[in-house]
Amino acid sequence: MRVLQALFFPPEQPGGVSSMVPFMLDRFNKRGWEMELFSLPKRIRGKGTEEVRFSTFDWTVYAGNPIVDKYIQTYKDYVWWTKLRIQKSFDLIHAHHPIAGLVMKQVLPETPLIMTVHSSYEKELILNGKIAENGPEHAFLTSIYRELEERADQLITVSNSFKHYMADYLQEPERVGVIPNGFDEKRFRPVQHENKVPQLISVCRLVPAKGLDTLLYACAELKQKGHKFVLHLIGDGPIRQELEELAVKLDIYEETIFYGYILHPEDFMPFFDVFVLPSRAESFGSVFAEAALCGLAVVGTDVGGIGEQIEHGTNGLLVPVDDVPALAAALEKVIGDPMYRYQLSRIALEKALKAYSMTRVVQQLRAVYRSYKKE
């Protein structure tokens, strides 16, 4: 069975999906499946000229808005690149981005399409201050969900909370499947260690949606109470300078290390003690599962897929969004009690190995793929 995995970002780009799918493809290929990876190179810009039409809504009423115009041009570029590069047929296409899915169905309409919606682009843009809620760009991007429902043979998403979110934009939301992301267990090796000073780590793109300002304020409270710690921030983004200035203002710059982007943070994440990320929205929150697989205690906000991964007080701690005192109290609890921290991390690791292993994802997807196998 020939299957095409269609990404938007190239595999070398940072991010849970683009790093996960190549490992998944490798597992399938080792089991005798014929799978290939396809994505749009970053250098392809402004090449596509073919007219774009959707069957469920008229996108042109939103034309003139920069986010919409960029989305449509990227769609055209993906069409251009797909027609140029795809020269053979496939039995099935599994797309991991709306543009990839819609384009593949346009160019190869007879090929069954499975579409996994991994995240909410519009929520990220709203939280990062790029678009207004209920504005034209918001309306355009949420209309894409209905178009995907119309065009894809099977819609899948990564958490029950995100399925519930999409339900407002679909006609038959009950048909959406849920398959949480999976991770190659071999990439993650917990390391037995003992740090005299608790080491906190967060890995994410430095954007407002990740709530890192809340984290810095919480760490300032920890310092005021006399707790020793080091905060490691891995990632880059448009608000890095703003965060560094905030760390100086809060007098925690000496306790905070800004690394910038690192390709494989899982290589040294096992040497830290606590993973913390107070996101304002997450469809799944892949980095929490990765941190658990590295043997860390995890602290997050009760939003989206994070709340489905963490059972508060059992395999991690959950706090409300933007609640500095609650986050500071949770961090105080895990850094002040090494035995409690170890207990949380041990149970988190056990759950992650069971629920978020790549083996589990391959088994679930294999069943879906086989349902489209030609007799």
Rank of each mutant, 00 (worst) to 15 (best):
L206V: 03
E137W: 01
H193V: 15
F162V: 04
C219Q: 09
M166D: 02
R187Y: 08
C219V: 05
E194C: 12
T142M: 02
F140K: 05
R189K: 14
G182Y: 11
N160V: 03
K228M: 09
R240Y: 08
V158E: 07
Q241E: 14
Q241V: 11
L141F: 13
Q241H: 02
D236N: 12
L200Q: 07
H227W: 00
S143K: 05
T142R: 12
D213L: 09
L215T: 08
E185C: 00
L222M: 03
L212A: 00
H164W: 06
L216H: 13
Q171N: 08
K223D: 01
A167H: 10
L200G: 11
H164R: 14
A218C: 13
P180D: 13
P238Q: 04
F188C: 13
S161T: 10
K163V: 03
D153S: 14
F140N: 07
F188I: 11
R240W: 00
A139I: 02
D153C: 07
G235W: 12
A218T: 07
S161W: 09
N181L: 15
N195G: 11
D153N: 15
P190V: 13
T157R: 13
L233T: 07
G182L: 12
L231A: 03
E185P: 01
Y217R: 15
S159V: 07
E185V: 05
V176L: 06
H232A: 03
S143G: 13
Q199A: 11
T214F: 10
S143Q: 09
L206M: 05
G235A: 09
F162E: 01
S202N: 15
K223S: 12
Y145A: 11
C204F: 06
F183M: 04
H227R: 05
I239C: 10
E194R: 15
D213W: 06
I239V: 15
R189F: 09
K196R: 13
G211A: 11
S202G: 04
S159Y: 09
N195E: 11
D168E: 08
L231T: 12
Q224K: 15
L200K: 05
A167C: 10
R151L: 08
E172A: 05
F229Y: 08
E137C: 14
F229G: 04
